[in-house]
Structures are given as structure tokens and as C-alpha cells.
Simulated assay, not measured.
Amino acid sequence: MRAYYFDNVPGDQRLLHDSGRAVSEERLRSLGVLHWKVPIETPGGWGAQIDAVAAERSYKNRDTINVTREGLGDLYETKLKSFFEEHLHEDEEIRYILDGAGFFDVRELPTDEWIRIHILPGDLLVIPSGVYHRFTLDELNRIKALRLFKEEPKWTPHNRSAATDENPYRVEYVRSVSAAA
């Protein structure tokens, strides 16, 4: 995992868009974004480490998502566009990357700048509920990820708007980050 400020230069969203300004894991943690490195080649398998994090954070369910042109067919471009729209969720978004790669962009508070997080196999990333973010593949054009959920699997995006700014999960996220600052 590597994090940095997005350069905001127009162009293909799958490119690095690296401003040259790095973002530390400490800064990500202050925004509620958590990261663990659990190598795919872990002796005895990565499952036990993922299970330990899942137990610690009360994740009860999981599934696997495979985003590829071949796997999604005609829905590929539509799905990528929807993933890249700025939105929030009322649940944490938890991904353990099994193959491929992509980018999660999260909005920094209070600057509202994009922080780009490049995720690779072995990265376990938690995006907190209430944070504005978006996702895209990188130039590999594929990602396979284990998704973890506290309750039943769901993925309900709430696109950014004045109404979404008043969403109780957004309000609580802003309050918690502001209080920690």
C-alpha cells in the first residue's frame, strides 16, 4: 500500500495521478482509514490472520469480488463509473486484496483534498463509514478482493450531495475526526 495526494490532473483515472506528496499511515489512521499487510504467501496461509482481524473488529460475513472485463462483461464500464463516483457508505468498507490492484481515493478532512491509496495483493484496508471516497482499478484492469462485513453483505453507496452531508453516519464521521484532531 502506498498513499499520496491525488494530483487532480485530468486523464485516465487508472493512472497513478501521484502529486509527489506522500501521506503517512499515521495520517490515514487519523482519518479512520486502517491498513494491515497480510502477505498472500504467509506460511500456513493468510486465512488465520484475516480471521483474527475479523474477530477483533466483529466482521461476521465475507464474500469475494472479482472485477475484470471478462467477469463483468457488458457491465464492466458501468460498474467502474459507479465505483468512481464520490460516495459514502453507512458501513465500513473492508477489502483484502487477493490479486490485481486498484486505488481507493478518500477525502481528507478538513482540506477536502483527495488522498489516493494504491492497494496491492496482501493489503487489508478498512475505509470507515461516513467518509467520502471512490474506487478505481489501476492499469492492470483487474482486482480480486475478499470483502468483509459486520452484518449481511451489502454495498449501498450514497453519492455526495448536500443531503448526504447531513447523513447521520457522515455527521458522526466528521465529528469523530474533528475531535481527534
Rank of each mutant, 00 (worst) to 15 (best):
residue 100 G to W: 03
residue 104 F to Y: 06
residue 140 L to E: 13
residue 140 L to M: 12
residue 140 L to P: 04
residue 138 D to V: 10
residue 87 H to E: 14
residue 72 L to N: 06
residue 107 R to W: 06
residue 118 H to D: 08
residue 75 L to E: 12
residue 85 E to H: 14
residue 136 T to R: 02
residue 139 E to Y: 08
residue 84 F to N: 15
residue 88 L to Y: 08
residue 134 R to K: 11
residue 141 N to C: 10
residue 117 I to V: 11
residue 101 A to T: 08
residue 90 E to A: 10
residue 122 G to Q: 04
residue 116 R to H: 08
residue 75 L to R: 11
residue 117 I to K: 01
residue 81 K to S: 15
residue 125 L to C: 05
residue 112 D to M: 09
residue 80 L to S: 12
residue 113 E to Y: 05
residue 105 D to M: 03
residue 143 I to V: 15
residue 129 S to M: 13
residue 142 R to W: 04
residue 128 P to N: 06
residue 76 Y to G: 12
residue 107 R to S: 08
residue 125 L to F: 03
residue 92 E to P: 14
residue 100 G to C: 08
residue 118 H to L: 10
residue 107 R to I: 09
residue 129 S to G: 13
residue 89 H to E: 07
residue 137 L to D: 00
residue 114 W to L: 06
residue 124 L to I: 09
residue 83 F to E: 03
residue 75 L to Q: 14
residue 100 G to A: 07
residue 151 E to T: 14
residue 109 L to R: 07
residue 97 I to E: 01
residue 111 T to S: 15
residue 77 E to M: 12
residue 128 P to Y: 02
residue 105 D to A: 03
residue 129 S to T: 14
residue 83 F to C: 04
residue 79 K to S: 14
residue 86 E to F: 05
residue 132 Y to P: 02
residue 91 D to L: 10
residue 136 T to E: 03
residue 83 F to D: 04
residue 139 E to I: 09
residue 80 L to F: 11
residue 99 D to Q: 12
residue 104 F to E: 02
residue 112 D to Q: 11
residue 116 R to P: 01
residue 111 T to D: 09
residue 149 F to V: 07
residue 120 L to H: 12
residue 75 L to D: 12
residue 141 N to P: 02
residue 109 L to Q: 06
residue 149 F to T: 04
residue 91 D to N: 13
residue 85 E to L: 15
residue 72 L to R: 03
residue 111 T to N: 09
residue 108 E to Q: 06
residue 112 D to I: 06
residue 114 W to K: 03
residue 123 D to L: 05
residue 117 I to N: 02
residue 86 E to T: 15
residue 121 P to R: 02
residue 84 F to W: 11
residue 85 E to W: 12
residue 143 I to L: 10
residue 85 E to F: 13
residue 143 I to W: 00
residue 128 P to T: 06
residue 112 D to F: 09
residue 142 R to L: 13
residue 109 L to S: 04
residue 88 L to G: 01
residue 128 P to M: 05
residue 70 E to C: 12
residue 148 L to D: 01
residue 93 E to T: 11
residue 86 E to N: 13
residue 135 F to C: 02
residue 148 L to Y: 00
residue 71 G to A: 07
residue 140 L to R: 13
residue 86 E to M: 15
residue 96 Y to E: 05
residue 85 E to K: 13
residue 147 R to A: 07
residue 126 V to I: 15
residue 148 L to M: 09
residue 129 S to I: 13
residue 92 E to G: 11
residue 72 L to W: 05
residue 130 G to M: 02
residue 128 P to A: 06
residue 119 I to A: 03
residue 95 R to V: 04
residue 78 T to W: 05
